[in-house]
Design a binder for these strands. Structure first.
Lengths: 251, 251
DNA sequence: CGCTAGCTTGATCTCACTCAATAGCAGTGG
DNA sequence: CCACTGCTATTGAGTGAGATCAAGCTAGCG
């Protein structure tokens, strides 16, 4: 089953029994079209979604109609597990591409919480990873320049996709427009464009139509001041994410 | 006991039994001097701290020596409960004032997780509140101007202090320098100074030496586009936080 | 073929930063 | 008591990174 491998990749230390348990808690698998809103702000919900395939976003809408992303989700992410305790969200969840998601009822999660504290702690951990990423996004917005922010975001996304096998070190899918990237880094689409040109001319990476090609990961990491510690990756993936492992070891 | 009332205020829906249970899990109470670092980044820890008295911060250090706050903690906050699952933090925790903190061993928390799933879920919820605040900080940095950011931060802090009885609607303690506020809002101390002057001249609030006096909460809320939904407060406090309850009802 | 969404480049503007100087105030020590 | 130090607050002048405005380009698609 597809979800199984996704769960395996994401939370590496999950035991077989735990994976089985989680998988059997899946109520259904839904698909959404690109652009659809999966969960709307301030709406009571009693399910949480695990992203199986595709990309999703979480974003807050500003009063003036602008929006800002607070998270980009890749396959294997539990996109709104935090709703299990919050019961309603302070932001929207949307599909960036056509996606398929595994639906967990909160009832089923409650059962896990009461019957398998170890697994519950893992789920809690997953939501804490999310918070750690939020903190890094705060750091990115507060302390980095436009060029550094974009580089940092690309490094982060690359690292996370590496962890789930969606990148092999040389490039990865990124189904986002330059305006979308702007909504992550708090930049206008115009300025994102200029920054991407700079990164290209510096020989670091090429970003075009839904795909990022990495030319010099170590350089990109340096420009973005990227340190993957906050992603709590295993050492091997972390090393690869910052370019400390030669590409020749892989594929 | 002091901690009891703090716990009561913060998580309103805690039952007596749960409060007792939590309180009995306290291993010790420590004090720290203003400026001390309670928890250092990337250092393995096996305790979590509940702030009983005083103010604390969580901050990430940038490469260039600058730092940026990712959270300001008020009495009643579980400042590093997230360490229970993460085991080491991606940021520092420091004391803004002299503080006293209740120490919980992760062993004791583990016991709660295994024996009292309902209480464990409340603790999980508390960590999710934290994440919700992180998201709002991202929104603040990305979508608001300097003036709006400062107003928003003041509204947030006021709302949180209202919830724990440290504000009565007209003012509250805020032991932060203008540079500290700058590290929250990603502004220089010089600009924070100008913004505070503006807010004063607009008749909204006065911020001086560790104390904020609120002159027009509704106006401040409006300037900061503040909506306390993300704090998940009870309706009464939320209404008071945005100035929808006349002051005459209180004190 | 025309339409639309996304990408690209140039010119101008502005909000907040930087640099700089002064003032107030608490603590400290002679 | 005053001199001295250090930290915080305040105000002014000049600067710059990124926004805004505007125009043209490219490519997919009905």
């Amino acid at each position: 089953m597809l979800t199984k491998s996704v769960l395996l990749n994401r939370t590496t230390s999950l035991s077989d029994a735990e994976r089985d348990r989680l998988e059997s808690a899946i109520a259904s698998v839904r698909t959404l079209r690109a652009g659809e809103t999966a969960v709307r702000q301030d709406t009571p919900i009693n399910t949480s979604l695990l992203l199986v395939e595709g990309f999703m976003t979480r974003h807050v809408d500003a009063r003036d109609g602008k929006r800002h992303l607070v998270a980009v989700h890749v396959p294997g992410d539990f996109v709104d597990l935090h709703a299990f305790t919050l019961k309603q969200l302070d932001h929207d969840v949307g599909a960036l591409t056509d996606v398929s998601v595994a639906v967990f009822t909160h009832e089923a999660l409650e059962k896990i919480l009461f019957e398998d504290a170890t697994l519950a702690k893992r789920l809690w951990f997953i939501t804490m990873l999310d918070a750690a990423q939020h903190r890094q996004w705060i750091y990115r917005l507060s302390s980095l320049t436009a060029q550094q922010r974009v580089a940092h975001f690309l490094c982060e996304t690359h690292a996370r996709l590496l962890a789930v096998g969606w990148s092999h070190g040389h490039g990865f899918p990124l189904p986002m427009t330059q305006s979308d990237i702007g909504e992550v880094c708090s930049l206008t689409n115009v300025h994102v464009n200029r920054v991407l040109r700079d990164l290209r001319e510096m020989g670091l990476c090429q970003v075009r139509s839904s795909r990022v090609q990495i030319l010099d990961i170590a350089g990109l990491v340096k420009v973005g001041s990227f340190d993957p510690g906050y992603l709590y990756l295993n050492a091997h993936v972390a090393a690869q994410a910052v370019g400390h492992i030669g590409d020749s070891h892989h594929e």
